[in-house]
Design a protein around this nucleic acid. Structure first.
Lengths: 339, 339
DNA sequence: CTGTTAGCGCATTCAG
DNA sequence: CTGAATGCGCTAACAG
């Protein structure tokens, strides 16, 4: 019989079994799978048939060990909740899947220490690349990545500190400044700001700085408050701001979620928006356009950003693309009703 | 010299190098890493020091090949946007990370065909388990998983069709029915429904059925419309519903996002909520409690659900836990202002 | 407590 | 176009 080890379960099929069954060597099977064009049509068909009959699924772990580099992209993302991050991940997932890469993901609000250990364990899988959400603050984690020379793309603030590798993003600073100036150009003077404290030097803090810069430019004293990024905090932020200075006539919120919360608070108070106070957001969530009043916001093409990041990475991996390319995705001020 | 291959880059450190440097055999190093308690304190310290000095990160690909099962959990999730799925993923990620497992994720809106190929490639990594978002419709994909005998937990409708393995979730049917009856108990009679078409027999369609059942029970003809799950569709849905029957006095929305959209549409029309029409949601997003009016909704403990799923899976993997456990996480009707 | 001997399943040399 | 040997880096047994 062809089966020389009766103990073997039929599910433990490997290249060898396929090879036997189709009367070729293992390597030919391997080739038929990875480089089909190098195998004769006829042989290939026989092999495919055997694969199908035995329900063979190549062991990626073994394959990638032999190749000594895994078709895996590591990624570390902040909590996806209440933010557009999910769209970025979607974008990444879309293109990577198509190219046969898997996404190894770690999600959460991390301390520097955990971040380090995360990067370490990701590195343990010898990933072909990293896509990071501008989240690598720890010097140690950075040096790990650098020393292994793993191609890396950061989705981040475009003007921030030196990226590890390539990066794609928008100028959060510029966008926030532009939005603030936009409010000023529409006649608002006392513009307040609700921003979210950043865990380090990341994109969120840049939005605040953009606001501050704009206020400096228009020569009005800033009034600001920092709150976590929930709609509850948007409401609280508005309250705090109005207490600090009742004459505030517009508020720039560093995220749409905050803006939504602030607007609801205005409704509760019976304040017309933008009649009593104008509210602008950031991020242009789907919800923003549907709110009453519709929220003036900054549009970021997040899904596309994820796709671009993945493509840049693949370009580096496969074609030796520029490891330090910086791609500015730009932003767009969407003028609606709330400001 | 200790270094007998000068060509080797210092980054290509393996167990062997660590072993040499600390004067022990490779296996001892391996043990010091994986089963520290089986190695003498003193030896261990020497090994750790060497690891540190050389910046060694164990190759998981090799390790898992040897172990012939990867410390990887595969997962397939629908688009995370506009849903509570992100929280579930967060919950899973939290516990898996702690236990040294990595999460291999595929995200998207998949056809049966793509779903199959996804499961196949996930299987290629010989994952220790799967956590699926009730998304495996294809018979072929199911049989793949079954035949490899991979421990699986589905986060899903608790009363749906037979799960592949264990499952955790809530009765979407029951919750939707309960909410509808709740509305009835508050005096609403002509209750409409905006639900989202499901890609198959999943939790979304169960919500619709729960609504339908409740209407049958209270003896009122249902009025329903099906729309995608965006806030725009919530607004459109309300419009369509009111056109179909202007006497509708309450609407059950199969998601909070829809409910938010519907409420905004009411605002635009100058309709008081719940004065003109009451609106109830499902899911209890953070936003729901902050809206004006605050949205009456069904609370699902999604983060916890993710954690429970991960823990059930680990229990199966490590302690031979019940492979077909069904855990009902329950739901809670949160009465607020909108209905 | 530690080391030696064998693979894990596949892909990359080389020949044929 | 195909095949046979060799090794990817680590871990599981068994010995010592």
């Amino acid at each position: 019989m062809a089966d020389d080890s009766p103990d073997k379960l039929s599910q433990n099929v490997g290249l060898k079994e396929i090879a036997q069954r189709s009367g070729v060597g293992v390597i030919t099977v391997s080739r038929a799978i990875n480089h089909p064009e190098t195998v004769a049509e006829k042989t290939r068909r026989r092999i495919y048939q055997a694969i199908d009959e035995l329900g063979f699924i190549p062991n990626q772990v073994a394959g990638n060990l032999a190749r000594s580099q895994a078709r895996i992209i590591g990624t570390v993302v902040p909590p996806l909740i209440n933010s557009g991050i999910a769209e970025q991940v979607q974008g990444m997932s879309d293109v990577l899947r198509e190219k046969g890469f898997q996404l190894l993901i770690s999600q959460g609000e991390f301390t520097l220490e955990i971040e380090e250990s995360l990067i370490r364990s990701l590195l343990g899988w010898r990933p072909a690349g990293f896509i990071l959400q501008a989240y690598v603050q720890s010097e140690k984690a950075r040096s790990y990545i650098l020393s292994r020379d793993v191609p890396t793309v950061e989705i981040s603030e475009i003007e921030g500190s030196t990226p590890i590798g390539a990066s794609v993003g928008v100028s959060n600073f510029g966008a926030a400044r532009a939005m603030t100036l936009h409010l000023a150009s529409r006649g608002y003077r006392r513009i307040g700001c609700i921003s979210t404290p950043a865990h380090g030097n990341d994109r969120l803090s840049r939005r605040r700085l953009g606001y501050l810069r704009a206020m400096e430019e228009i020569g009005v004293a800033p009034v600001e408050v920092q709150r976590p990024m929930t709609s509850l905090d948007g409401a609280l932020g508005l309250t705090m701001l109005m207490e600090a200075d009742p004459r505030i006539d517009a508020i720039f919120c560093a995220s749409d979620t905050l803006a939504i919360g602030a607007i609801q608070e205005c409704h509760r108070r019976g304040w017309p928006v933008p009649g009593r106070v104008a509210i602008a957001g950031y991020g242009d969530l789907e919800l923003a356009s549907q709110m009453f009043p519709a929220i003036t916001s900054v549009r970021i093409r997040r899904h596309e950003m994820g796709q671009v990041a993945a493509n840049m990475l693949l370009d580096i991996i496969y074609h030796g693309g520029n490891r330090h390319e910086v791609r500015d995705m730009g932003y767009e001020i969407i003028q609606r009703e709330s400001a």
